[in-house]
Design a protein around this nucleic acid. Structure first.
Lengths: 204, 204, 204, 204
DNA sequence: GATGAATGAGCGTTCATTCAT
DNA sequence: AATGAATGAACGCTCATTCAT
C-alpha cells in the first residue's frame, strides 16, 4: 500500500458511510471494517475522530470553492454570475450530501472544537458571491448596502434550500425542480431591490 | 410530587440539555440525573426516548403555530402580515433554540421513525404564510404562481437564517440585527417579483 | 370484583403468558398489564414472583393428579391401567404446556427456593404408577424389584417424551403420533421384562 | 496472553457459570468479571451472547458424539453396543451438566434463533443409536419398525433420566445408581419387544 | 505501516419490588 | 382492595481510544 493511499480510502469511505448511515452510523469501528483494516490503523493517519472530520470539512470547503469558481470569470454579467453561483451551490450540496452535511449541518454543538481556520476557507466561497454583488451593485443591477452582509443573506437562502432538501423536510408532494428554480429566482431577484433606509433592528 | 409535574420537568430539562449539550448529550441517564430522579422514572412518563422526542416535537410545532398566529387577523395588509410572520418565525427560532433544533435540525435520518402526524401540524404554520401570499397575490402586491411552493420558499429562507445563527456559522463580525433585518426585507421583497415564464428545471 | 376473582385471573393470565412468551416473557409488569390492573395489585395476592410460581406449581401437580386418577379404579387390568396412565400423563403434558413446564422444566436452578412440599404432592401421582406396577407384579405381568424405583423409571421415560416434544427438539420429520405410540408401547413393555440379577452400579 | 487463550477461558467460565447459576445467571457482565476482564473483551471473541451460546452448543454436540463413538466399532454385539451407548449418553450428561443443559434443556423458546446446523450435528449421535438398532434388528435381537423412530424413543428415555437427575427432581431417597441401571436395562429391554401391529394414533 | 488486545464509559431499556396513600 | 410513584440493579451492547509489539 503506497504512502498515503490508505488515508485517501479512509476519507472516501467515511464520506460514503456518512451519507449512507448518517452521523451516528459513522463509527471508527465500522469505518475500519469497511476499508478492511484494523481500527488502530485509522489513528495512524488521523489523531482522532474529530481530526478526521476536520480534514473532511476542509476538503469539502475546498471542493465547494472549486465547484463554484470553475470558469466563473467567463461570465461577465454580474446577474448571470450570481445566478450561476446559486445554481452551483445548490447542485453541489445535493450532489455531495456527505460533504455538505459535515460542513454545515452536523453536530454544531461540537463545532467549537474545530479551529477557526474553516471560516477563512469558507469565506473564500462567500467572497465569490460578494464579488458578484459588488460588481452588480456598481452596475446598478443589484442594490446592496454592505455586500458582505448581502452575501451572507444569499448563503442563508441557499443553505435553507439545501438543508431542507437533504433532510427530506419538504412536503413530499412539492415538485422539487420548480421549488428549486423558484428559490434561485427569488434569491437573485431579492438582490435587485433597494433596501429601505430605516435602521430599526429586529432583535437585541 | 403532584400529578404530572415530573413529566413537565422531564420535558423542560430535556429541552435545556438539548440546547446545552446537543442531541448526543441528551441521554436518558443524564436527563434523569439532571432532574434528580432515577433513569427508570422517565419511563413512567414516556414509553422510550423516541416518544419523549415525539412529544417535544409536537409541543414545539404547537408553540410555533401559536407564536405565529397570535393576533395575526388584526393585520389586514398582506405584506405587513407576511413581514410579521417572518419576524415571528425568526424570533421564535432564536428564542426557543431547543424546540427549533428538535423540530427542524436534529437527526433527520431518524425522523422517519416519527409518524407523519408532525407534518400535518407543521403545515398549519406553513399555511399562515400561504394565506398571506394568497391575499397579497390577489391584491397584486405579491406575485406567486403557486402559493404553496412560494410559502415553502419563504420557509426555506427563514430556516436558513435561524439554523445558521443557532449553529453559530455566520461570521462573528457580522452585525446580527442588520443581517436579520436584511434577511426579512429581502425575503418579503422577493415575493414582489414577477416570476419569469420559463419552465426549465434545474435538476433532474 | 369479588373476593378472589383477581387472584384467579392473575394465575390464569400467568399461565397464558408463560406458554405464549416463555418464562422470560412472564414479567410482573406484563402480567399486570395483561389483566388490566396495576403491578402493585399482584402483590396483594402473592408475596412475590416465586410465590406466584409456587402456587402455579401446586395447582399443576393437583390437576395432573386428577387427570391421571379420574376413573382409574374402573380399570382392573394393571397393564391397561398403566397404559392409561402413560397416555394420560403425556396428553396432560402436551395439553397443559404451561403447567408442565413450570412443574418440571423451568429454572431448575432455583427450585431449591421452593419448599419440599411439592414432592409430597408430586409423589401422589407417582404412586398411581407404583400401584399399577405393584398390582401387575403380583399378577406376574410386570417384573419389578422395587416398584418405587420402577415408577420413577416410567416417569423418566414419559417426561423425556413430553419435554422433548414441548421444546420442539425432535426431528421435524418424525411422525409425532407414531413416535408417541411407540414411547408408550415400549414404556409399558419394558416393565414386562425380568431384570437381571446383577447388582453392579453404573455411576458413583 | 497468548493467541486465543482468553477465548477458551471465556467458554470454560461460561460453562461453569451456567451450571452454577443457571441460564439467567450467565450474563456477559458476570462472565467478564469471573474471568477478570472487562465485558467489552468478550465481544472481541464472540459477536454476541447468542454466538457464544452457539459455539458452546456446537462444542457440546461434538464432545457428546466423540464420547459416544469412541471405540464403538470394537463392540460387535448390537445389544452390547446399544447398552454402551446408553451408559455413555447418561454418563456424558451427568459429567458435563453445562454442555447437556445448554444443548438440550435451556431456553427452548430461543433455540429457533440458532441455525438448523445443530440438528445435523445432533443427528450424528442419534445415528449411532439407529445403527445399533438396525444391526440388532437384522440379527433378530431387536424389533423395530422404523429405526429412526426407535432411536428417538431411546433418546427420549435417556434424556428423561439425565434431565431429571440434573434438575434434582427425583426423590432424594431414591438410590441413584440402581435407578440409572434400571433406566438402562429397561431402555435396552424395551427394544427387544415386538411392537403390536395396530396403527391407532394417540393424539391428533 | 499496521495490528491484536484490551478497556472505561456510556447507551437505552427492563426487571421485581417497595412505600405511602 | 387497589394504586401511582419511584427505584437500584442489572441487562446486552457499542463507542472512541490506547498501548505494546
Amino acid at each position: 500500500m503506497g504512502e498515503h493511499d490508505l488515508r485517501r480510502r479512509i476519507l472516501d469511505e467515511a464520506r460514503y458511510l456518512l451519507v449512507r448511515e448518517g452521523y451516528s452510523g459513522l463509527s471508527m469501528r465500522k469505518l475500519a471494517q469497511a476499508i478492511g483494516y484494523s481500527a488502530t490503523s485509522i489513528y495512524l493517519y488521523f489523531k482522532n475522530k474529530d481530526d478526521l472530520f476536520h480534514v473532511l470539512i476542509l476538503e469539502g470547503l475546498e471542493k465547494l470553492y472549486e465547484h463554484l469558481n470553475r470558469g466563473l470569470d467567463g461570465i461577465p454579467s454580474p446577474e448571470q454570475r450570481l445566478r450561476a453561483l446559486c445554481e452551483r451551490y445548490i447542485s453541489f450540496g445535493l450532489e455531495n450530501p456527505e460533504y455538505y452535511e459535515i460542513m454545515f449541518v452536523l453536530h454544531p454543538e461540537k463545532s467549537s472544537r474545530f479551529p477557526r481556520e474553516h471560516y477563512r476557507r469558507g469565506r473564500k466561497s462567500l467572497n465569490l458571491f460578494a464579488q458578484a454583488l459588488e460588481d452588480g451593485t456598481r452596475e446598478g443591477v443589484f442594490h446592496c448596502r454592505d455586500v458582505s452582509v448581502s452575501a451572507s443573506v444569499i448563503w442563508t437562502f441557499l443553505h435553507g434550500a439545501v438543508s431542507l432538501v437533504l433532510a427530506h423536510r419538504l412536503d413530499a408532494r412539492l415538485d422539487r425542480s420548480s421549488y428549486l428554480k423558484e428559490v434561485i429566482d427569488r434569491t437573485v431577484a431579492s438582490m435587485k431591490f433597494p433596501l429601505a433606509v430605516s435602521n430599526e433592528s429586529l432583535n437585541p
